[in-house]
Design a protein around this nucleic acid. Structure first.
Length: 576
RNA sequence: CGGGGUGUAGCGCAGUGGCUAGCGCGCUUCGUUCGGGACGAAGAGGUCGGAGGUUCGAAUCCUCUCACCCCGACCA
């Protein structure tokens, strides 16, 4: 490709609206063009890169025994009513009407349609297992698109669906997909973490996310450096620090006898931090009360003062669709005193608590009266709860649930997610098969997603320097960036043109900076910005030595190669 | 949806009631330059996000509205 014919232009300065590296570089290098919030055109350079990612995905998916197909993005809304997901997805589901007024949606994912396809085509255990995949445009009306291609409303996703006779077979498909995913990321030069993840309201047993560690990521992953335990923070379990054996305080806490309840005046004290300081106690000797609205019902949540609520765990525990913090009005209406609320004496609300409330004794807690707290609260002596279950957020420093070593936290971008779905969709949509004995069963399903554009963004997030993108060779739009310097010199033009033709003839994808009127600095800076693996410079100086200058994007020093041997040298460099 | 911010030339910005709306980059033409973002000269390019209002007069003041960005609850 000649740069004089390339539609996109590089930007001289960073676009001010772009915060994250990938967003900034995608815009600046002319790879994407924004059309609306979270809606982007992929310009030719990006599209070449995306197609390479797709090729890698296809090769690995095919190798794992799955079959590619293509499903429609436009679907009847009715299909989504059947599984209840129209309501579950809410505003995220792009909805429209056709000319007859029939409700339609732009699909955010394809479980409904793919299950229908399998229902129509699979009747026997002999037809299973099946894994189907596509690479197709998805639509999600996200509340807040952000960071360029990281979070958008229209995006290309590789989505795969496995259909198996039983759980054991499902596990085989799941493992095959997990391995395919690892291969895909490795081939894209992306070191990912495979983290245990929440499987969402639909349920199912296993779920893993593939997270690329970057400081700008939206997700937090909890890892154990000792045993390798890795889980999304929303899913992760942690052993609370007080339960760890080596603090004197804990031993004291465990043996301390329960003391009688005692009111204490706490003027103006509203937060846990203030309370702990006022009473000269660690926050782990207080109880924290938080109020949520779960599908409209106000729920009273208690956990130890040093812990935070994991809303995903709470949502799963409550089996509700919508969970949010209760508003001030709802709190008042329920008769609660924000800043001094207490589970003691609450009888009109559903109460949920974390087991941490019984790790330790004689807690300080609110008194349900302003400016008063209570000391020496003990569960279950002083209050009861309707549900006692793990709803705490694992935090760095907490103990690993497997080996008790201190956990660490990492930010990252989710670049893939795999789920065991179980039989939710096959039951809702009647995708059944007959086993050897002629008995009917719902098909066990799994689903597996990779955001292709997000993967490109993540690759750039991970592979760049202060001069620009550093494309991993397998996903670079072109392999070589041929720069002609001083192209007003006919000899240089002739030599560069000839080399350009030769490289393509040798199968080396080459971008040719044939702009006649740009200064050397502009061209070299653009080459760094675009970040193709190899840069070749043809110039009068090099031509006098009958040589071409070759430099890898990550290298600081160039090497001179004889003109005749350039193609061979490039092939060797790219092969290595 | 809550909070914060921005809309003026292709891009980045200046312009707080007064003449024909400016600056830098980019773009066009000519000339000079030519290895890390050149120089000179001459040009082209604007519904000042949109609608309504106030005023002799609005990019500027008021009302409404739309779009986009950033921070929080969701996901590939």
């Amino acid at each position: 490709m000649r740069m004089t014919r390339l539609v996109s232009k590089t930007l001289r300065a960073d676009p001010p609206e772009a915060e994250t590296a990938s967003h900034r570089l995608l815009l600046r290098a002319g790879l994407i063009h924004q059309v609306a919030a979270g809606v982007y055109a992929y310009l030719p350079l990006a599209w070449r890169s995306l197609r390479k990612i797709e090729d890698i995905i296809r090769q690995e998916m095919d190798a794992a025994g799955s079959q590619e197909l293509m499903m429609p993005a436009l679907q009847p809304r009715e299909l989504w009513e059947q599984t209840g997901r129209a309501a579950a997805m809410g505003q995220v589901l792009f909805s429209l009407e056709d000319r007859r007024g029939r409700p339609m949606v732009l699909a955010p994912t394809h479980e409904e349609v793919v299950t229908g396809i399998v229902r129509a085509n699979v009747q026997s255990y002999r037809d299973l297992p099946v894994i189907l995949y596509q690479i197709q445009t998805k639509f999600r009306d996200e509340p807040r698109p952000r960071a360029g291609l990281v979070r958008v409303r229209e995006f290309d996703m590789k989505d795969a669906y496995s259909f198996n006779a039983d759980e054991e077979s499902l596990d085989d498909s799941y493992q095959a997909m997990a391995q395919a995913y690892r291969n895909i990321y490795r081939r894209c030069s992306l070191p990912v973490l495979m983290a245990e993840a929440d499987s969402g309201a639909i349920g199912g047993k296993d779920s893993h996310e593939f997270i690329l560690s970057t400081p700008t990521g939206e997700d937090t992953v909890i890892t154990c450096p000792a045993c390798g335990y890795t889980a999304n923070a929303e899913k992760a379990e942690g052993v609370y620090p007080d339960a760890m054996p080596d603090t004197a305080l804990d031993t004291a806490l465990d043996t301390e006898p329960e003391q009688p309840l005692e009111e204490v005046a706490t003027p103006g004290i509203k937060t846990i931090a203030e309370l702990a300081e006022f009473l000269n106690l660690p926050t782990s000797r207080t109880l924290k009360a938080v109020f949520y609205a779960a599908d409209g019902e106000t729920v009273f949540v208690t956990l130890r003062g040093d812990l935070e609520v994991n809303e995903v765990k709470l949502k799963n525990a409550l089996h509700c669709q919508e969970l949010r913090l209760a508003t001030d009005a709802e709190v008042r209406e329920a008769g609660l005193v924000a800043g001094s609320a207490s589970p003691i004496g609450i009888s009109n609300l559903r109460q949920v608590a974390d087991p941490s409330i019984s790790q330790g004794r004689n807690f300080a807690v609110g008194a349900n009266r302003p400016d008063v707290h209570v000391q020496n609260a003990n569960y279950p002596r002083d209050f009861q709860v309707d549900l006692l279950t793990d709803i705490a957020l694992a935090q760095p420093g907490h103990g690993c649930p497997h080996c008790n070593a201190p956990l660490e936290a990492t930010r990252g971008i989710e670049v893939g997610h795999i789920f065991k779905l179980g039989t939710f969709y096959s039951e809702a949509l009647g995708a059944l098969y007959l086993d050897q004995e002629g008995r009917q069963h719902p098909i066990a399903m799994g689903c597996y997603g990779i955001g292709v554009g997000r993967l490109l963004a993540a690759a750039i997030e991970q592979n760049h320097d202060d001069r620009g993108i550093v494309f991993p060779a397998p996903i670079a739009p072109y392999q070589a960036h041929l720069v002609g310097l001083n192209l007003t010199d006919p000899d240089v033009v002739a030599a560069a043109d000839a080399l350009y033709r030769e490289l393509w003839a040798q199968g080396i994808e080459t971008l040719y900076d044939d702009r006649p009127d740009q200064a050397a600095g502009v061209k070299l800076n653009d080459a760094d910005l675009l970040g193709l693996p190899l840069r070749l410079v043809v110039s009068p100086r090099n031509l006098r030595n009958n040589a071409v200058e070759v430099k890898g994007r990550r290298e600081t020093e160039a090497t001179m190669v004889e003109m005749d041997g350039v193609a061979a040298a490039i092939k060797q460099a790219l092969g290595a």
